[in-house]
Amino acid sequence: MSTQSTNNNTNNPTSDVVTSSVPFTLKRWNLVGIWSWDVAHDVCAICRTALSESCLRCQAASNLQECIIVWGTCNHSFHNCCMSQWVKQRAQCPLCQTDWVINRIGQ
């Protein structure tokens, strides 16, 4: 943002005066952003599909509900659907074998 800081430097002293005389003023603005899960690995180690996609089960069921992501205290992340199935058999993280404790669930 180096340009912006130079802009600010040149503009600051007179900015209030200039606003009315500048050629272009902002009227309306639509921002577009993209969100993705904040994860270290892109792929769910349990179902092997990308974490940005729904898990295999949800895809197969053509489930329109959001398939959310869960993080353990080990900071590994999986589809919540996959992990809830996994912990029924083993209460450990599939990647690092530490005991599985949920840190947070994506929303």
């Binding site: 639509n30 577009v32 952003g33 993209i34 969100w35 940005s52 729904s54």
Partner: peptide
């Protein structure tokens, strides 16, 4: 005057 669209990377 601002509006925003925050879109899922998975779908778009």
């Amino acid at each position: 005057s601002f509006s925003f669209k925050i879109l899922s990377a998975a779908a778009w």
